[in-house]
Each structure stands twice: as C-alpha cells, then as structure tokens.
Design a protein around this nucleic acid. Structure first.
Lengths: 246, 246
DNA sequence: GGCCTTACAGTGGTCTGACCACTGATTCCC
DNA sequence: GGGAATCAGTGGTCAGACCACTGTAAGGCC
C-alpha cells in the first residue's frame, strides 16, 4: 500500500479503490474530518480514471463513510446509523412478515437496555424519560402523535442505557419500529381499556427505573410487550367479528 | 414514478437513481433474482448518463442489493448480512473501546434468543446445540479452537430462537464477537478452575433449554456472562501482579 | 452426424476529455 | 469600507469510444 495500491490484481479497479479506502479507514490512516484530495489528483495517484474513482467514492458516501460536498471536496466522516437504518428498512422489507419478528429484536435490546439504565441512568436521563412519559399521556387520543410519543419513550430508555452498541442497534431497527408503533396504535386505539392500560404500564416501567430495580424493570417491560400483543390480538378478533365483510 | 423518475429535483443524479432503485426494491416491483436492463438501455430510460447510472449501481452492489456480473448483467439480490457485518466491523472500529460495549448487545440478543429457543427449538436444534457443546469440551486446551467452539455454541442457541431478526443482528456483530472470544480465551486459559467452570456453565445453559425453562435459561446465561467477566478481571489482575514489567 | 473450434453479439469495465454547477476567496468598483 | 463581480478549484455530468468477459450460434473438422 506504500506506493499506492499497485498489486491486488484480480480485483476490478473500483473494488481496488474501495478496498484501499476501507483499509485506510480501518487502520486509522484516514481520520474523520480529514479532507481527501481532489478527484482528478486522486485518480492520478491511485492509477484509475476519474469515473472509476467516483464509483468508489460514491459507494463510500452511500455507506456513510464520506461526506461529499459539491464545490468543496470529500471529507471522511464518522459513520452514523442512518445508513444502517436504511439498510434494515429495505433489507427486511424484502422479507414480508418480518415486522413481527423485528419485535423480538426490540424486546431483546430494550430489556437489556433497561437493566443497564437502572444502573447507569443519570438524573438528566430520568428527567428525559419522564418528560416523554408526560408527552405520551398528552397524545393518547391521536394514533400518529401517540405512536411517536410511545416510540420516543422507549427510545429514551435505550439511550439511558449509555451503551453505544445498544443505541446503534436500536437505531438500526428504529425506522421499522416507528412505523409499526403508529400501525399498532391505529389498530388498538378503539379497544376498551387501552388508554388506561397504556398510561399505567408505561408509568410502572418508568418507576422501576427510578427505583433502579433491574429485575423488576425487565419483568415489567416484558409484561408490557406481552399485554400489548394481547390487546392487538383481541382487537383484530373483534374487528373481524364485527364486520367480516369489510 | 410512472414515467421514470422525472421530478425529485434537489437530489443529484446518482442519488435520484439510487432512490429510484431503493423504492423499487422496497415496494416489491423489483424482486430478487430479476435481471436489470443493460446499462446503456437503463441510462436512457432513467435519463442519466452511463457513468452516473454506474455510480448508483455500484453503490447498490456494495450494499449487497445487486449482483453485477461482467459480461452477463446486473441481478437483484436478497441482501445478506455480510454487508452488515462489514459495516459494523469498520464502523465500530472507528470507536475504540467499543468492543466491551458490543458485549451488551450480545447479552441482549442471546438472552432474548434463549427465551425463544426454550419455546421454539426443535429436536434438531437441540441436537445441534448439544454437538457444539461436545465440540467445546474437546477444545478446551486451545484458545483458537476453543474460542471458535464457544462462539459456535452460542450461535447455535441464537439460531434455535428461529427469529430471523435476532439471527441477523447477531450475525452483524458476529465478526467482532468471534475475535473477542479468542482474545478472551487467551487471557483466561491459564486461570485456575476456568476449564471446569466453562464446561459446567455451558452445560447448565444447555440443560435449561432442554427443559424449556425460559426464565432459568435467561438467568443462567446472564450468570455465565457475569462470571466470565469476573474471570477476566481476576486474570488481568494476576497478570499485572505477577509480572508488572511485562 | 457429432463434436470441437471459432466468431459474434451483448454486456459490464474503463478511459478520455470536455463542459456545467457550486463554493469560497480574491479583487474590483462604488 | 462595504458590497458586487470575478475567478480558481472542486464535485457533477456527459458523450463516445474501446477493452474484457460471457454465452451462443455458426462454422469446420473428424
């Protein structure tokens, strides 16, 4: 790699360039914030044409590792989770019926996150979660806002875990969850007792964190998910019972 | 979108094309296995030049959604998790010290997976996990093989959960875990009692699944992780106590 | 006739060189 | 001195050509 990239045949040009940058990123010779040379200069150095170089740069940019700004240049960027979220969104979209299964991942992440939150949450974190709870109670009537508030509450818990990895993974399935939250609310909003239940369940979860009782918090959260499933099932049954033609 | 892509200004050409394909993939109008039109034809239809089209295609290919074969054409592909794994590997590589944090994600996924495994595991799954356990016992002496066997055992549990989403996420952090397994074994292999402990802990976990006791399995797994941490801590302490110069 | 070889058409891969569009700084004019 | 015009540098796009690979169909050989 010292000279440029020279060897590494059997790889096509663009892939060589791509691999070159990947390695440079991994081994730290390219740091976030750094500016790359111009495309013309770079293509000369790497021994490929500008279009080929651009293919590689564009790919890296799509993956979130480069920030390319018209008229300014290309900058190395700390990859963020938006790409991951995109990826999951249309990777999992290819497999229908996966949405229910994503719920399993959600339970996994949140239950571990809430345990960590019980240990690590700061006062600020608790306040944050609390304010989301208030918001949730204020939007119970509206599927759209209510779903968003619900999601925000759970997200605040995950953030309170102070675990980058958990937050990252949660962000990755976040877009899918956000949609499903709204959908679920639309289905269950008319179910009797749902409003009272929602408030109570979320408050209990919140209180467990405040009391820093990890086992209890985990249990309450699992119960919350299980009962949510139950509500949805009941609501679907009644929907099909009341108007089987629709 | 009916005509081609027409509107959607403010996006650069390649991004328009990229978005076009992403949408087509998400809404199912492009199915895995399908063959795209040739680059020349496609660039005409989409109203962009071939290089620009290629930038988008290459990006999609890097993301794993296209399989481009020289001389044959571009085929839609079901995205697999290798891309994700790659992504995590060098996204998280940018943040040192994240490896410990990945452990949190691991605990999250495995603890939920083992609960599901208790409900869903087939006889074949159980046999599979069992054989991995045997393999683990046969390779206790070797950090390399032992680490691999350890990882394989845990992976078998996740697979027994029969949850695509969990398996996918686990695969995403798999490469990082695999490395850390070997590293951990190297650190703790000389710790007194570690061998007996490893066998016992894994066997108890396995038995809990066989007995289909979800709560117990979850607890045993958490204990296993906690005790593993303890062993590593102890081993680090003694290493620095015995030979502070090294 | 059957098999192997060759030629060809179609496809992705690469290159060149040009021009456009945006950005930021410099310069010029008021 | 402040604002506007200019300009160099950069990414964005394009057209057209040629190379390399693949599969097939035509041709020739046995």
């Amino acid at each position: 790699m010292s000279t440029v990239l020279a060897e590494n045949d059997d790889l096509s040009g663009a892939e060589k360039v791509f691999a070159f940058f990947r390695d440079a990123l991994v081994d730290g010779s390219l740091k976030p914030g750094e500016r790359l040379l111009g495309e013309r200069e770079l293509s000369l150095r790497l021994g490929v044409s500008r279009p080929v170089l651009r293919e590689a740069l564009r790919s890296l940019s799509m993956l979130g590792f480069l920030d390319i700004r018209h008229g300014k240049g290309a900058y190395v960027r700390q990859a963020d989770i938006n790409v991951l979220s995109d990826f999951f969104t249309f990777s999992l979209a290819q497999q229908p019926d996966i949405l229910d299964d994503v719920m399993q991942a959600r339970i996994a992440i949140e239950c571990q996150a809430i345990r960590l939150a019980c240990e690590r949450a700061t006062e600020t974190d608790l306040k944050h979660i609390g304010s989301r709870l208030t918001q949730l109670m204020d939007t119970l009537h509206d599927p759209m806002d209510g779903g968003a508030a619900d999601f925000a509450f759970h997200q605040a818990i995950v953030e309170a875990s102070r675990s980058e990895a958990l937050v990252t993974l949660y962000g990755a399935i976040g877009e899918l969850l956000r949609r499903s939250h709204v959908q679920r609310r639309e289905v269950t909003v008319s179910e009797p007792g749902i409003v009272d239940y929602l408030v109570e369940a979320h408050r209990e979860v919140f209180l467990s964190i405040v009391e820093r009782d990890a086992d209890a918090a985990d249990r309450k959260l699992r119960d919350h998910f299980a009962i949510g499933d139950e509500f949805r099932r009941r609501s679907l049954i009644s929907a099909f019972t009341r108007r089987p033609q629709t």
